[in-house]
């Protein structure tokens, strides 16, 4: 991806202060650049600072040291917080706690109401957004009658209706069943490909990283590794030393080749199955 940086972290540090007034470092001297149109997956343990990263990206948090630049703005030194939040949409983990509206369409309207979109245009945008996430048939439903995946799709519709350039999923699939997780991943991949929305997926499911353009591995407030999924997951030993999981296919391939079974590095379960079949047939 050779385009202008959309989000740029320069030497960013961030601390939380605990109840005794002690500073707990969350991010330390972090540098990160996200280009327009990219699909980046950020993985890491709980407490590795990956959620803080997300909140820094749309000015919900401001860096203690260093600079976060979003589009033309610096988050710490601008009055345009609202424009930043319109440009960078954030989907949270718990679907129940981010739906404000009493019906699906009311919820999608919430963000539009906030940025003062005229009612007539709102109608069009809501319909388009619901259609894009496949929820058009549920516009009048009450959120508590939806499945987890449907709720998260509603939340995503609420964000894409605001026409953002970046969509951040902050562990948005963590509370979903495998079916819901698959739905959401397919949806954001399509939004990335077809609508050109930059996607940053923060997750602790390594499986969600295999289709990304880039994987960023966070550890103790720092970037531990980054690169294409193929490069990052090639170093299984290093990842596992830090206690991070790798996709199942990668793990199996790693064990097999360590034990003398000749299988080339791969990422997807499908590739693994094909390789194993080939081995079996060529025995």
């Amino acid at each position: 991806m050779e385009s202008a940086p959309l989000i740029q972290f320069e030497n960013v540090s961030f601390y939380y202060t605990d109840e005794f007034g002690e500073k707990l470092p969350v991010l330390q001297n972090l540098n990160l650049t996200i280009a327009e149109g990219e699909f980046v997956t950020i993985i890491g343990h709980n407490g590795s600072g990956k959620s803080t990263l997300a909140k820094l990206m749309n000015a919900l948090l401001l860096p203690a040291e260093g600079e976060v630049r979003v589009g033309p703005w610096k988050t710490g030194a601008t009055q345009e917080v609202w424009k930043i939040r319109q440009m960078v949409g954030l989907v949270f983990q718990n679907p129940d706690n981010q739906i404000v509206g009493s019906t699906v369409e009311d919820d999608v309207a919430f963000g539009l109401e906030n940025i003062g979109v005229p009612p007539a245009e709102m109608r069009e945008r809501i319909d388009a957004a619901l259609k894009a996430v496949g929820m058009a048939a549920y516009a009048q439903r009450q959120p508590h009658k939806l499945s987890g995946g449907q709720k998260q799709r509603t939340a995503i519709a609420g964000i894409i209706a605001m026409r953002p350039r970046v969509l951040i999923l902050d562990e948005a699939t963590a509370m979903l069943d495998p079916q819901g997780r698959k739905e959401i991943m397919e949806l954001v991949r399509r939004l990335n490909r077809e609508a050109g929305i930059t996607v940053i997926n923060i997750s602790h499911f390594p499986e969600e990283a295999v289709d990304a353009d880039r994987v960023v591995v966070m550890r103790q407030g720092k970037i531990f590794m980054q690169g294409t999924p193929r490069n990052v997951f090639a170093d299984v030993t290093r990842l596992q030393e830090t206690g991070l999981d790798v996709p199942l296919a990668v793990r199996i391939q790693h064990y097999l080749s360590a034990n003398g079974v000749p299988i080339p590095p791969l990422l997807h379960q499908k590739e693994l199955v094909e390789e194993l079949c080939r081995l079996f047939l060529n025995r």
């Binding site: 939040r85 949409g89 718990n94 706690n97 539009l112 109401e113 906030n114 003062g116 605001m162």
Partner: peptide
């Protein structure tokens, strides 16, 4: 309380800043 806190954060992330300049879907 936990829900309230998360909801407030989510609302802010979606650009909520009080009633001023807000439009309404339901007319």
């Amino acid at each position: 309380f936990r829900r309230a806190e998360e909801l407030a954060l989510a609302m802010e992330a979606r650009g909520y800043r009080g009633g001023e300049g807000r439009t309404k879907l339901r007319q």
